[in-house]
C-alpha cells in the first residue's frame, strides 16, 4: 500500500474518527487554556494537577473499569484544583506545596494501581492514554469536559486577560483575581482530565503547554496568540494522529497514538524555536 492509500484508509475507520473527535475537542480547549498557562507561568501548577488527577484515574479504573476513569479523574481534579488555587494564591512557598502534593498524589495512585490484578496493562493505559481505542461514550464525555473548559475561559476572557497582565490593575478595575484563578484552574483540570484518556496522564502537559509557548514566540498582540495556539494544537494533533496510523499500518510498527501526538507537539516547539532564532523578530518593533 502506498502512503496515500493508507492515509485514505484512515478516514474510513470509525476508531480514527473517534480519535480525531477527541483530539479536536482537546486541542480547541487546550489551545485556549494553554495561552493562559503560558501567560501566568502556571506550567508547574498544571504539572501538579496532572499528577493529582492520577490517583483519581487509578481509583476510578479499579472500581469501575475504563468507564470509571473519567469520573475518578473529575473528582480528584476538583479536589486538587481547590487546594492548588488556595495554595498558589498565598504565593509563599507554593512551589514546595505543589511538589509535595504532586508526589503524594502520584504515590497514592501507584499504590492503588498496584492493588489491581492487571497492573501493567492498566498502568500503561492510564499513563499513556488509549487514543485508538476510545469508546463512543468516552468521546462524548471528553467533548463535554472540553466544552466546559472552553466555555469557562470564554466567559471570563476579559477578566483572565486583565488579571494575567496586571493583577493589581484588574483588582482595581473590579475583577476578583482569586475567583478568576479558580475558574482558570478548573478549566486546566478539565483539560487534564479530558486529555488523560487520549494522550494519557504523563503526556498531557505537552498538549497544554506547547501551543501557548509557540504562539507567544510569534505574536505581537492577543488575537494572534489565541488563534495561533488553537491552530497549532489542532494541526499538530492531526499530524500526530495520521503519522501514528500510517507508521503503524504502513511500516507495521505499532506506534502509540498519544505519544506520537505529544512528540509532534514537542517537535513543533523545537522547529519554532530554531526558526525563531534565525528569523529576525519584526513583531517586537511593531511599526506596522
Amino acid at each position: 500500500m502506498s502512503f496515500f492509500e493508507i492515509l485514505g484508509q484512515a478516514f474510513t475507520l470509525p476508531f480514527m474518527w473517534r480519535a480525531a473527535a477527541v483530539l479536536a475537542g482537546l486541542t480547541l480547549a487546550a489551545g485556549l487554556i494553554g495561552v493562559f498557562v503560558n501567560l501566568r507561568g502556571l506550567e508547574f501548577l498544571s504539572d501538579g494537577l496532572t499528577h493529582a488527577v492520577f490517583p483519581g484515574v487509578a481509583a476510578g479504573f479499579m472500581f469501575a473499569g475504563t468507564s470509571g476513569v473519567l469520573y475518578g479523574a473529575i473528582i480528584a481534579a476538583a479536589l486538587a484544583t481547590v487546594f492548588l488555587t488556595l495554595v498558589s494564591h498565598r504565593k509563599v512557598t507554593s512551589d514546595a506545596a505543589i511538589a509535595i502534593m504532586l508526589t503524594a498524589m502520584f504515590s497514592i495512585g501507584v499504590i492503588i494501581v498496584s492493588r489491581s490484578h492487571n497492573v501493567s496493562a492498566s498502568l500503561e493505559q492510564l499513563l499513556f492514554g488509549h487514543l485508538f481505542t476510545v469508546s463512543p461514550t468516552e468521546v462524548v464525555i471528553t467533548l463535554i469536559v472540553c466544552a466546559v473548559a472552553f466555555a469557562l475561559i470564554l466567559a471570563t476572557l476579559r477578566g483572565q486577560i486583565f488579571s494575567s497582565f496586571d493583577v493589581r490593575g484588574a483588582q482595581a478595575a473590579g475583577y476578583r483575581p482569586l475567583a478568576l484563578a479558580l475558574v482558570l484552574n478548573i478549566a486546566i483540570a478539565c483539560v487534564v482530565v479530558a486529555a488523560s484518556i487520549a494522550v494519557g496522564n504523563l503526556l498531557v502537559l505537552a498538549v497544554i503547554i506547547v501551543p501557548g509557548a509557540i504562539a507567544r514566540m510569534w505574536t505581537r498582540g492577543l488575537g494572534g496568540l489565541f488563534v495561533g495556539a488553537v491552530i497549532f494544537a489542532f494541526v499538530a494533533a492531526t499530524i500526530g494522529l495520521l503519522a501514528s496510523f500510517t507508521i503503524s499500518v504502513g511500516a507495521d510498527v505499532s506506534v502509540p497514538g498519544g505519544a506520537t501526538v505529544a512528540m509532534v507537539f514537542v517537535i513543533g516547539y523545537l522547529i519554532s524555536l530554531a526558526v525563531r532564532a534565525i528569523v529576525p523578530d519584526r513583531s517586537v518593533r511593531g511599526e506596522a
Binding site: 486577560i161 494575567s164 497582565f165 493589581r168 490593575g169 505581537r220 498582540g221 492577543l222
Partner: peptide, 17 residues
C-alpha cells in the same frame, strides 16, 4: 507591578480600561 513580557499591543492594553 506589570508583566512587561506579555504579548499584547499598546492599543490592547489601553482597551483594558
Amino acid at each position: 507591578d506589570i508583566d512587561s513580557e506579555f504579548p499584547i499591543t499598546l492599543k490592547q492594553v489601553v482597551m483594558m480600561g
